[in-house]
Design a protein around this nucleic acid. Structure first.
Lengths: 256, 256
DNA sequence: CTGTAGATTCCAGATATTGGAACGACATAT
DNA sequence: ATATGTCGTTCCAATATCTGGAATCTACAG
C-alpha cells in the first residue's frame, strides 16, 4: 500500500470535509504528519488543481475539481442503480439475457447485464466493448445520436458474420428504421445465431445515455418471442428513462 | 512534486472520466505506466474506497466516494460564489467592511470579506476564527441553530471587552432578541470600538448555513448608519438565501 | 486438454520521500 | 520603533519507499 498516496488522500479529504480553509499547521496536525510533509503534499495537490491556497490568508482549501470528477462518476452510477431493478424485471419477463450498455467512441460498452437462466444463452461480460453498428443496443443508441457518433461507429466497419450490415449506406437505412419503429432488431450480425432487440434510454435532458436490450439464440427468438421481447424492452427503456427524469412530451409508441 | 501521488491521481481521473469500467492493462496503457505499477496504485485506491474492482469482469471503476467528497466541496463554494456579488453591493451601499462567515464548532469562521475603503476600518482575515457568542455574524447564525450549537458556543465564554455578553443567560436573551428582530447587533463585544450588524443566510433546505454582516468603527456607526446597514444587511441575507434556493414561505420582515 | 491473455505477486535495485533545521515573512506585543 | 513569536517555506543527506521485469496464477477459448 502506497503510503504517500494514502497521505495525500488524507490531506485532500481533510480539506474537502472542512467547512473552512485550513492552515498548513492545522492540516499537518490533523493528518499527523510534519509540516514539511504536509506542505509538499499540498504543493502537489495544488499542481493537480485539487487544492488552492487562498491568497489572503495563505491557508488551503479544496477546489471544485473534486466535485467535477465526482459528478462524472455519479452520472454513470445513477444509470446503473436506477436501471438495475428494471433489468431484473425484463429478464424475468423475457427469459433471455438482458444487457445495459453505453456508447463510447463508436462502440457499445456493456455496463450491466443479467443472464438468462437457460442452458443456451447469449453471453457477454460487463466491460466488453462491441461495435455499435452491428449490435442491438449499439444501433439503438446510434439511431438517436448525431452525425459525429455515427461517423465514429462507421470508421472501421467489417463483416463479422454473413449477415453483418457493413456499409455506411446500409447502416443509415437500418438507423432510419430504428428511429421509425423505436427499437433496434439485429439477427446474427455480430455473433452468429444471436438475435437482439434493444431500445435507447434517455436522461433528464433528453439525450440518449444508454441502451437496454435482450439477446437470445435464434432458435428461441421466433416471431412470437421477439414480439414479446420488443414490447418488454420498450417498456423497460421507458421506465428507466422516466426514473432518470426524462418526460416524453409528445410522441411515444408501442407497436400495436 | 510527488510522483506517486500524481500517478495515483491520474489513475483515479482516468477511471472517473471513463464511461465504463477499465481493465488493468488499459489503465496502465492510458496512464503510461507498467501494469505492476498501475496494479499497486489501484490496490491502494481500493483500500481508500475510491475504486472498486467489479467482481464479474475484474476491471476497475471509480466508486461514489469521489462524488461524496466533491459534494462537500461544492456546498461550500456554492455559498461563496453566489454571495460574492451581493457582498460587493453591500459594501458599496454601506461603505463599511462586509463579512461572510460560517458556523464551525462553536465559532464563526470568516470565509469571505470585502474591505471598507475608509482609512479606519474593521479588519479580519479570511479563515479567522472568532467566538460566535460575541460577534455579529456568529450571533446571527447562533440564533437560528439548535441547542447543541449554542452549547458549543457557550463552552468557553469570557469577557473580551467590558461589553462582552459572557454568560449563558445573557446570551440566551441576546439570541431571543436576534430571533425577534431578524438581525444581530453587537457593539464592541469582541473588539473594542467595533460595531457589527449581521443576518443569517439559509440554504434551500431552510437551515442556516452562513451569516453576512457589516462592521465598522463605533464613531461612524451612529443610529442613522446602523439603520441603513441593518436594512442593507437584511436585504443581502435575503438575496443570498434566495440565490441558494431558499424560499421564505410565510414570515419575512424588514424593520419598518 | 492445451494455449493464450491477462491479472497478480515477488524482489533486489533505483530513487523519490522524509523530517529536522534554517530561513523569511508577518503580525502582534513591548 | 523594535523585539518577539508564529507560521509558511526551502534545503539536504539518510533511508524507507517505490519501481519494473520476471515468475506465477487464473480463466477463458480453441
Amino acid at each position: 500500500m502506497e503510503k504517500t498516496v494514502v497521505k495525500a488522500i488524507r490531506v485532500l479529504e481533510s480539506l474537502a470535509l472542512s467547512p473552512r480553509p485550513r492552515a498548513l499547521g492545522e492540516i499537518a496536525a490533523v493528518c499527523d504528519m510534519t509540516k514539511s510533509n504536509a506542505h509538499r503534499l499540498l504543493q502537489t495537490l495544488s499542481e493537480m488543481h485539487y487544492v488552492r491556497q487562498v491568497p489572503e490568508s495563505r491557508s488551503y482549501e479544496a477546489t471544485l475539481r473534486l466535485w467535477e470528477m465526482g459528478m462524472r462518476v455519479f452520472d454513470r452510477f445513477d444509470i446503473r442503480g436506477v436501471a438495475s431493478p428494471v433489468l431484473r424485471g425484463l429478464q424475468e419477463k423475457t427469459g433471455e439475457s438482458v444487457h445495459l450498455s453505453i456508447f463510447d467512441d463508436g462502440d457499445a460498452v456493456y455496463i450491466d447485464r443479467i443472464d438468462s437462466q437457460q442452458a443456451v444463452r447469449a453471453y457477454i461480460r460487463i466491460g466488453d466493448r462491441v461495435p455499435a453498428y452491428c449490435t442491438a443496443t449499439g444501433r439503438a443508441m446510434l439511431a438517436c445520436l448525431g452525425e459525429a457518433e455515427v461517423a465514429a461507429a462507421s470508421r472501421d466497419m467489417r463483416r463479422h458474420t454473413e449477415l453483418t450490415v457493413a456499409t455506411p449506406d446500409a447502416l443509415a437505412a437500418a438507423l432510419a428504421e430504428v428511429r421509425e419503429k423505436g427499437y433496434a432488431l439485429t439477427r446474427g450480425e455480430w455473433r452468429q445465431g444471436v438475435v437482439g432487440v434493444a431500445a435507447p434510454i434517455r436522461s433528464q435532458s433528453g439525450t440518449v445515455v444508454a441502451g437496454v436490450g435482450v439477446a437470445g439464440p435464434a432458435e428461441r427468438m421466433g416471431e412470437d418471442n421477439v414480439a414479446v421481447a420488443t414490447r418488454a424492452v420498450l417498456q423497460a427503456a421507458t421506465d428507466i428513462s422516466h426514473a432518470l427524469g426524462f418526460s416524453d412530451s409528445g410522441h411515444a409508441g408501442l407497436p400495436s
